[in-house]
C-alpha cells in the first residue's frame, strides 16, 4: 500500500515551516500526482455536487458510486483499468435513474435495493479475483497516493469534459434544478437535462473514487455542496463555495496524511464534516 510508503519515505518529519514541509513532500512524484488528480477531482466534485444537492439527488449519487464498485471490481477481475469499469457501470446506473425522472429522489427503497445488490456483486468479483484484498480496500476507501501519471491524464480529460458540459448546460441545469415545472413549461427538455446530468454524476463519481473511494464519495460530492447550499444566495456563488471547500479539504487531507500515518480520505471526510457541523451550529445560533 502506498500509504505505508508515505510514512517511510518522509525521512524528514513535520517542522511547522509549511513551505519547507511542502517542498519536502513535493519531491516525490506520487505526491505530485496525488495533488494534481486531487485538485481536478475536487473542482469537479464541487461543481457537480452543488447540482446534486440542489436536485436532491445525494442518495442517488451515493448509490451510483456503489454501482460503480461492482464495475470497478469486475474490471479488476478481467484485468482492465478499474476506472473503465466504473465509467460503464455508473453510466448505466445513471441512465436508469434518469429514466425514473423526478421520482429518482423519492424512490429510495428501490435505489437502495439495487445499491446493496451491486455491492454484493462487487464482493463476488473481488473474491473471484484471487489477488490482493488491497484492491477492494482501495476501491472502497480510495488510494490517491497510488495514482500514476496516466491516471492523472485520464482524470484531466474527464474533468475538462465535465466542466465544459456543465458550462454548456449551465442555465438550463440551474433552471431545472430550482424550478422544474416552470422550466418544462418554458420548453426545456427536463428529461434531456436530467439524463445529461446523471451521466455527469457518473463520470465525476468514477474519477472521484480514486481520491475518496466509493464509500466516501459523499464527503467530496455532497458535504461541501451542502455547506455551500446553506450559505449561498445565488447558484454561482454556491458553486464557488462548494469548489473552495472541496479543494481546501483535499489539499489539507493530502498534506496532513503525508506527515501523519493515517489515510487521506479520513482527513478529507473529517475536515468537511467538522466544517458542516460548524456552519450548522453557527446558523442555529444566529437564527
Amino acid at each position: 500500500m502506498m500509504l505505508k510508503y508515505a510514512a517511510t519515505l518522509s525521512d524528514t518529519g513535520f517542522h511547522w515551516n509549511l513551505w519547507a514541509d511542502f517542498q519536502n513532500m513535493w519531491q516525490y512524484a506520487f505526491m505530485q500526482h496525488a495533488f494534481e488528480a486531487g485538485t481536478i477531482v475536487a473542482i469537479v466534485a464541487g461543481v457537480v455536487g452543488y447540482f446534486v444537492v440542489m436536485r436532491r439527488l445525494s442518495f442517488a449519487a451515493h448509490a451510483l458510486s456503489h454501482v460503480g464498485f461492482a464495475g470497478a471490481a469486475g474490471a479488476v477481475l478481467i484485468g482492465v483499468n478499474p476506472v473503465f469499469g466504473l465509467l460503464v457501470f455508473t453510466s448505466g446506473g445513471g441512465l436508469a435513474m434518469a429514466a425514473l425522472g423526478r421520482r429518482a429522489n423519492t424512490q429510495d427503497v428501490q435505489i437502495g435495493t439495487v445499491l446493496a445488490f451491486m455491492l454484493g456483486l462487487g464482493v463476488l468479483f473481488i473474491n473471484l479475483y484471487k489477488g490482493y484484498a488491497t484492491e477492494a480496500y482501495s476501491l472502497l476507501f480510495g488510494e490517491i497516493l497510488g495514482i500514476s501519471i496516466g491516471d492523472v491524464f485520464i482524470t484531466l480529460v474527464a474533468g475538462v469534459l465535465i466542466i465544459a458540459t456543465v458550462a454548456l448546460l449551465y442555465r438550463r441545469l440551474v433552471f431545472t434544478s430550482l424550478d422544474e415545472d416552470v422550466a418544462e413549461a418554458k420548453g426545456i427538455s427536463v428529461l434531456g437535462v436530467g439524463i445529461c446530468f446523471m451521466l455527469l454524476i457518473a463520470v465525476a463519481t468514477s474519477i472521484a473514487v480514486q481520491v475518496v473511494g466509493v464509500l466516501l464519495i459523499f464527503a467530496l460530492m455532497v458535504t461541501p455542496a451542502a455547506i455551500a447550499g446553506r450559505l449561498a444566495s445565488r447558484p454561482a456563488q454556491g458553486i464557488a463555495i462548494s469548489v473552495g471547500i472541496a479543494l481546501a479539504a483535499t489539499w489539507f487531507g493530502l498534506f496532513t496524511s503525508y506527515y501523519l500515518p493515517y489515510p487521506v480520505s479520513f482527513f478529507i471526510t473529517t475536515s468537511v464534516f467538522i466544517l458542516y457541523l460548524a456552519v450548522r451550529l453557527l446558523q442555529a445560533r444566529s437564527a
Binding site: M54, R56, A167, L168, L169, Y170, R171, R172, V174, F175, L178, D179, D181, V182, A183, K186, G187, I188, A226, G229, R230, L231, A232, S233, R234, P235, G238
Partner: peptide
C-alpha cells in the same frame, strides 16, 4: 408548488431571473 428547499438560501430575485435567461444554453 409544494416544496421550497428548507436549507437553500437562494434569493427570490434569482428565481425571477430564471424566467429571463434560464432556458438558454451556456452561462
Amino acid at each position: 408548488r409544494r416544496i421550497v428547499d428548507g436549507e437553500s438560501k437562494i434569493q427570490s430575485v434569482e428565481y425571477v431571473r430564471l424566467a429571463i435567461a434560464g432556458n438558454r444554453w451556456g452561462f
